[in-house]
């Protein structure tokens, strides 16, 4: 009988309209939910990040596999993946003393102390701010740059889109575009993640003869080498992809780096 008089059971036995019970139940529910949700998030986070990393690496590997001749080049150079460098976006220089694997670009972009604000008129991708450095992946063969893979991100219709843009050795033609993360409308904008749509990208050119970045996802069919067929019903997502690429290939993104790479090599 002792446990019947324990405080907890007495509390539960109170009438439901008793203020003490109301506050008590509210507090308990809030506390228990908070503990359960937070524990789940914290305990499971390592596994989740591991999955995310694995998925990103798998997408990169899959993208490389699909590029014609890439497997041979990789075999020839003896590498099984690309070399990662950390690039200072403002100057286009490679940052020598930071390990690219240790650099968390997402955190640097979110932290106001390190993030670089993007001026409104240049902020095509709607990112507002970005990290000062970004990792790039380069495949070199015999001192020549064969392939450059740039991580890009931007705002789509309903979510953040993240992708890997692979450029061929001329740094002006797309080798591949792989979407690594998006939360667009299922069945519409989300189709940017389909292999069929991504297969439209290899061979597209990013800049016209004057050097202006004009690559775009258009409504309907593409009619020039700088255009890619849009997905019907997903124009805004397509615009998001266009703006994302134009920002990152432009002056405030990887532009300075690509110019440097063209002139000087790695």
């Amino acid at each position: 009988m002792d446990d019947r008089r324990a405080p907890f059971w007495r509390f539960l036995a109170r009438d439901n309209e008793d203020p003490v019970k109301i506050l008590g139940v509210a507090f308990l529910v809030a506390l228990i939910s908070a503990i359960v949700v937070s524990s789940a998030a914290i305990l499971l986070e390592p596994r989740q990040t591991a999955h995310l990393e694995a998925e990103r690496a798998a997408r990169m590997a899959a993208m490389l596999d699909r590029l014609p001749g890439m497997a041979d080049i990789l075999a020839e150079t003896g590498a099984d993946s690309l070399r990662t460098y950390l690039v200072d976006l403002a100057t286009g220089q490679i940052v020598p003393d930071l390990d690219p694997d240790d650099y968390d670009a997402a955190a640097a972009a979110a932290d106001p102390a390190t993030a670089v604000a993007i001026p409104a008129d240049l902020d095509l991708a709607g990112l507002r701010q970005r990290a000062p450095y970004a990792p790039v992946h380069i495949l070199e063969r015999n001192g020549r740059v064969e392939l450059v893979v740039l991580p890009v991100s931007g705002t789509g219709y309903a979510s953040r889109i993240e992708a890997l843009l692979a450029l061929q050795s001329d740094l002006g033609t797309v080798a591949a575009l792989t979407i690594t993360s998006q939360g667009e409308t299922a069945g519409l904008g989300a189709r940017i993640e389909n292999p069929e749509w991504q297969a439209l990208w290899p061979g597209r050119e990013i800049a016209d003869d004057s050097g202006q970045i004009v690559i775009a996802v258009v409504r309907g069919q593409a009619s020039s080498p700088y255009e890619v067929d849009g997905i019907s019903g997903a124009t805004r997502t397509g615009n998001g992809v266009t703006n994302m690429l134009r920002y990152w290939l432009g002056e405030h993104g990887f532009g300075p780096f690509l110019d440097r790479l063209r002139e000087q090599g790695v």
Partner: peptide
């Protein structure tokens, strides 16, 4: 044990 006034939020 869910009081009526806070039932929705609970």
């Amino acid at each position: 044990h869910i009081p009526h006034v806070i039932r929705l939020i609970v």
